[in-house]
Design a protein around this nucleic acid. Sequence first.
DNA 1: CTGGGGATGGGGCCC
DNA 2: CGGGCCCCATCCCCA
Length: 221
Amino acid sequence: MPRCFLVRQNLSRKKTNCYRQVNIDAGAPQTEIFPPVPHVGIGLLWDLYAPAVVGQAAPAKLPEKLPEASTCPSSSAGHQEGGSTSHPPSPDPPRRRSHRIKERRAATASSGSFPRTHREEEHDNAAALQRHIRTHALPCVCPTCGKAFSRPWLLRGHIRTHTGERPFSCPQCSRAFADRSNLRAHLQTHEEVKRYKCDTCTRTFSRASLLRKHAASGCTR
DNA sequence: CTGGGGATGGGGCCC
DNA sequence: CGGGCCCCATCCCCA
Protein backbone atom coordinates (compact mmCIF):
# COMPACT_ATOMS: atom_id res chain seq x y z
CA MET A 1 0.00 0.00 0.00
CA PRO A 2 1.41 3.37 -0.92
CA ARG A 3 2.28 5.57 1.93
CA CYS A 4 -0.08 8.23 0.69
CA PHE A 5 -2.93 5.98 1.68
CA LEU A 6 -1.91 6.26 5.28
CA VAL A 7 -0.50 9.74 5.60
CA ARG A 8 -1.99 12.93 4.39
CA GLN A 9 -0.07 14.14 1.39
CA ASN A 10 0.01 17.72 2.59
CA LEU A 11 1.49 16.76 5.93
CA SER A 12 5.18 17.43 5.96
CA ARG A 13 7.19 14.43 6.97
CA LYS A 14 10.37 16.39 6.80
CA LYS A 15 9.51 18.53 9.75
CA THR A 16 8.47 16.26 12.54
CA ASN A 17 7.12 19.21 14.46
CA CYS A 18 4.35 19.33 11.96
CA TYR A 19 3.18 15.99 13.24
CA ARG A 20 3.22 17.22 16.75
CA GLN A 21 1.28 20.32 15.99
CA VAL A 22 -1.20 18.69 13.71
CA ASN A 23 -1.81 15.67 15.84
CA ILE A 24 -1.89 17.22 19.24
CA ASP A 25 -3.33 20.58 18.46
CA ALA A 26 -5.97 19.01 16.33
CA GLY A 27 -6.59 16.59 19.13
CA ALA A 28 -7.50 13.84 16.72
CA PRO A 29 -4.40 12.06 15.56
CA GLN A 30 -6.21 9.03 14.28
CA THR A 31 -8.61 10.96 12.11
CA GLU A 32 -5.73 12.98 10.77
CA ILE A 33 -3.80 9.93 9.80
CA PHE A 34 -6.32 7.37 8.72
CA PRO A 35 -7.41 7.57 5.12
CA PRO A 36 -11.01 7.31 4.08
CA VAL A 37 -10.41 3.84 2.76
CA PRO A 38 -12.78 1.20 4.08
CA HIS A 39 -10.95 -1.86 5.28
CA VAL A 40 -12.99 -4.16 3.16
CA GLY A 41 -12.04 -2.13 0.16
CA ILE A 42 -8.41 -3.02 0.56
CA GLY A 43 -9.15 -6.66 0.16
CA LEU A 44 -11.17 -5.88 -2.90
CA LEU A 45 -8.42 -3.78 -4.33
CA TRP A 46 -5.96 -6.51 -3.63
CA ASP A 47 -8.11 -9.12 -5.24
CA LEU A 48 -9.04 -6.97 -8.16
CA TYR A 49 -5.63 -5.69 -8.91
CA ALA A 50 -3.61 -8.86 -8.69
CA PRO A 51 -5.31 -10.65 -11.60
CA ALA A 52 -4.94 -7.58 -13.74
CA VAL A 53 -1.20 -7.77 -13.64
CA VAL A 54 -0.76 -11.48 -14.04
CA GLY A 55 1.56 -11.99 -16.91
CA GLN A 56 3.59 -8.94 -16.03
CA ALA A 57 5.62 -8.23 -13.01
CA ALA A 58 2.89 -8.16 -10.42
CA PRO A 59 3.55 -5.28 -8.06
CA ALA A 60 3.84 -6.24 -4.47
CA LYS A 61 1.80 -3.24 -3.56
CA LEU A 62 -0.65 -1.00 -5.27
CA PRO A 63 1.13 1.34 -7.64
CA GLU A 64 0.80 4.99 -6.93
CA LYS A 65 0.42 5.69 -10.61
CA LEU A 66 -0.87 2.75 -12.53
CA PRO A 67 0.19 3.87 -16.02
CA GLU A 68 3.70 4.59 -14.90
CA ALA A 69 3.88 1.43 -12.89
CA SER A 70 2.84 -0.57 -15.91
CA THR A 71 5.66 0.90 -17.92
CA CYS A 72 8.15 1.11 -15.14
CA PRO A 73 11.31 -0.77 -16.08
CA SER A 74 11.07 -2.72 -12.88
CA SER A 75 12.37 -5.85 -14.48
CA SER A 76 15.08 -4.16 -16.47
CA ALA A 77 18.36 -2.73 -15.30
CA GLY A 78 18.40 -1.98 -11.62
CA HIS A 79 15.67 0.09 -10.17
CA GLN A 80 16.45 -0.23 -6.52
CA GLU A 81 16.34 3.03 -4.73
CA GLY A 82 19.35 2.56 -2.56
CA GLY A 83 20.57 -0.69 -3.91
CA SER A 84 22.18 -3.45 -2.01
CA THR A 85 25.37 -2.35 -0.41
CA SER A 86 26.78 -5.81 -0.66
CA HIS A 87 26.70 -5.80 -4.43
CA PRO A 88 28.51 -3.45 -6.78
CA PRO A 89 26.49 -1.50 -9.30
CA SER A 90 25.58 -3.76 -12.12
CA PRO A 91 23.35 -3.58 -15.16
CA ASP A 92 21.82 -6.80 -13.96
CA PRO A 93 21.63 -6.59 -10.18
CA PRO A 94 20.44 -9.51 -8.12
CA ARG A 95 16.72 -9.76 -8.24
CA ARG A 96 14.86 -9.16 -5.06
CA ARG A 97 12.90 -11.86 -3.35
CA SER A 98 9.69 -10.08 -4.16
CA HIS A 99 10.62 -10.13 -7.83
CA ARG A 100 11.32 -13.82 -7.73
CA ILE A 101 7.96 -14.47 -6.16
CA LYS A 102 6.20 -12.19 -8.59
CA GLU A 103 7.85 -13.98 -11.46
CA ARG A 104 6.95 -17.32 -10.00
CA ARG A 105 3.36 -16.26 -9.65
CA ALA A 106 3.32 -14.91 -13.16
CA ALA A 107 4.81 -18.13 -14.44
CA THR A 108 2.28 -20.07 -12.46
CA ALA A 109 -0.56 -18.18 -14.02
CA SER A 110 0.75 -18.79 -17.51
CA SER A 111 1.69 -22.41 -16.98
CA GLY A 112 -0.48 -25.47 -16.97
CA SER A 113 0.28 -26.36 -13.37
CA PHE A 114 -2.67 -24.48 -12.04
CA PRO A 115 -4.09 -26.77 -9.32
CA ARG A 116 -1.02 -27.16 -7.14
CA THR A 117 0.29 -23.65 -7.59
CA HIS A 118 -3.16 -22.28 -7.08
CA ARG A 119 -3.20 -23.74 -3.61
CA GLU A 120 0.20 -22.25 -3.03
CA GLU A 121 -1.03 -18.95 -4.29
CA GLU A 122 -4.11 -19.14 -2.12
CA HIS A 123 -1.91 -19.71 0.87
CA ASP A 124 0.46 -16.95 -0.13
CA ASN A 125 -2.35 -14.56 -0.85
CA ALA A 126 -4.19 -15.39 2.32
CA ALA A 127 -1.11 -14.90 4.43
CA ALA A 128 -0.24 -11.73 2.61
CA LEU A 129 -3.78 -10.47 2.88
CA GLN A 130 -3.91 -11.18 6.61
CA ARG A 131 -0.69 -9.35 7.06
CA HIS A 132 -1.86 -6.53 4.89
CA ILE A 133 -5.05 -6.21 6.89
CA ARG A 134 -2.97 -5.91 10.01
CA THR A 135 -1.28 -2.90 8.52
CA HIS A 136 -4.55 -1.06 8.91
CA ALA A 137 -4.37 -1.39 12.64
CA LEU A 138 -2.07 1.24 14.06
CA PRO A 139 -1.39 0.10 17.59
CA CYS A 140 2.07 1.62 17.87
CA VAL A 141 1.69 5.20 18.98
CA CYS A 142 4.56 7.61 19.41
CA PRO A 143 4.56 8.87 23.00
CA THR A 144 6.06 12.15 21.86
CA CYS A 145 3.82 13.23 19.02
CA GLY A 146 1.02 10.70 18.98
CA LYS A 147 1.61 9.51 15.46
CA ALA A 148 0.50 5.92 15.03
CA PHE A 149 2.18 3.11 13.15
CA SER A 150 1.27 -0.38 12.17
CA ARG A 151 4.48 -2.01 13.34
CA PRO A 152 6.80 -1.51 16.28
CA TRP A 153 9.89 -1.12 14.16
CA LEU A 154 8.21 1.66 12.22
CA LEU A 155 7.59 3.42 15.49
CA ARG A 156 11.18 2.86 16.56
CA GLY A 157 12.41 4.45 13.38
CA HIS A 158 10.06 7.33 13.91
CA ILE A 159 11.18 7.82 17.49
CA ARG A 160 14.70 8.30 16.21
CA THR A 161 13.47 11.43 14.50
CA HIS A 162 12.75 12.77 17.95
CA THR A 163 15.82 11.48 19.73
CA GLY A 164 18.27 12.16 16.95
CA GLU A 165 19.71 8.70 17.30
CA ARG A 166 21.65 7.64 14.20
CA PRO A 167 22.83 4.08 14.62
CA PHE A 168 23.78 3.50 10.99
CA SER A 169 27.12 4.96 10.03
CA CYS A 170 28.71 5.19 6.63
CA PRO A 171 32.01 3.29 6.60
CA GLN A 172 33.40 5.64 3.98
CA CYS A 173 32.62 8.93 5.62
CA SER A 174 31.61 10.09 9.05
CA ARG A 175 27.97 10.50 8.21
CA ALA A 176 25.40 8.61 10.25
CA PHE A 177 21.79 7.84 9.56
CA ALA A 178 18.75 6.92 11.53
CA ASP A 179 17.58 4.49 8.90
CA ARG A 180 19.44 1.69 7.22
CA SER A 181 17.74 2.28 3.91
CA ASN A 182 18.89 5.86 3.92
CA LEU A 183 22.41 4.74 4.63
CA ARG A 184 22.17 2.39 1.70
CA ALA A 185 21.01 5.22 -0.51
CA HIS A 186 23.82 7.34 0.79
CA LEU A 187 26.38 4.66 -0.03
CA GLN A 188 25.32 4.93 -3.63
CA THR A 189 26.64 8.47 -3.64
CA HIS A 190 30.11 7.06 -3.03
CA GLU A 191 29.90 4.84 -6.06
CA GLU A 192 31.76 6.10 -9.09
CA VAL A 193 29.43 4.33 -11.46
CA LYS A 194 25.79 5.19 -11.01
CA ARG A 195 23.44 2.38 -11.70
CA TYR A 196 20.53 4.30 -13.21
CA LYS A 197 21.20 5.33 -16.77
CA CYS A 198 19.10 7.57 -18.97
CA ASP A 199 18.12 5.84 -22.18
CA THR A 200 18.02 9.11 -24.03
CA CYS A 201 21.29 10.65 -22.97
CA THR A 202 24.40 9.30 -21.33
CA ARG A 203 23.69 10.59 -17.88
CA THR A 204 23.64 8.25 -14.95
CA PHE A 205 22.09 8.66 -11.54
CA SER A 206 22.48 7.17 -8.13
CA ARG A 207 18.75 6.79 -7.59
CA ALA A 208 15.83 5.64 -9.63
CA SER A 209 13.90 8.65 -8.43
CA LEU A 210 16.57 10.97 -9.80
CA LEU A 211 16.43 9.25 -13.14
CA ARG A 212 12.66 9.57 -13.15
CA LYS A 213 12.86 13.25 -12.34
CA HIS A 214 15.42 13.66 -15.06
CA ALA A 215 13.17 11.96 -17.58
CA ALA A 216 10.12 13.83 -16.37
CA SER A 217 11.85 17.13 -16.80
CA GLY A 218 12.40 16.25 -20.43
CA CYS A 219 15.82 14.93 -21.18
CA THR A 220 17.36 17.57 -23.39
CA ARG A 221 20.95 16.45 -23.26
C1' DC B 1 17.20 20.90 -12.65
C1' DT B 2 20.04 17.91 -9.90
C1' DG B 3 21.74 15.51 -5.90
C1' DG B 4 20.99 13.94 -1.67
C1' DG B 5 18.98 13.35 3.05
C1' DG B 6 14.89 12.28 5.83
C1' DA B 7 10.81 9.82 6.67
C1' DT B 8 7.74 6.18 6.10
C1' DG B 9 5.29 2.28 4.10
C1' DG B 10 4.98 -2.50 2.22
C1' DG B 11 5.91 -7.47 1.56
C1' DG B 12 9.30 -11.39 2.23
C1' DC B 13 11.25 -14.25 5.34
C1' DC B 14 12.80 -16.31 9.63
C1' DC B 15 11.97 -17.70 14.23
C1' DC C 1 0.14 -16.79 14.08
C1' DG C 2 2.63 -12.90 15.07
C1' DG C 3 6.89 -10.29 16.10
C1' DG C 4 11.00 -8.67 14.28
C1' DC C 5 14.21 -7.69 10.86
C1' DC C 6 15.37 -7.04 6.18
C1' DC C 7 15.23 -4.94 1.71
C1' DC C 8 12.92 -2.20 -1.46
C1' DA C 9 10.14 1.72 -2.92
C1' DT C 10 8.54 6.20 -2.78
C1' DC C 11 7.70 10.81 -1.62
C1' DC C 12 8.96 15.30 0.16
C1' DC C 13 12.08 18.77 1.04
C1' DC C 14 16.19 21.41 0.77
C1' DA C 15 20.78 22.96 -0.85
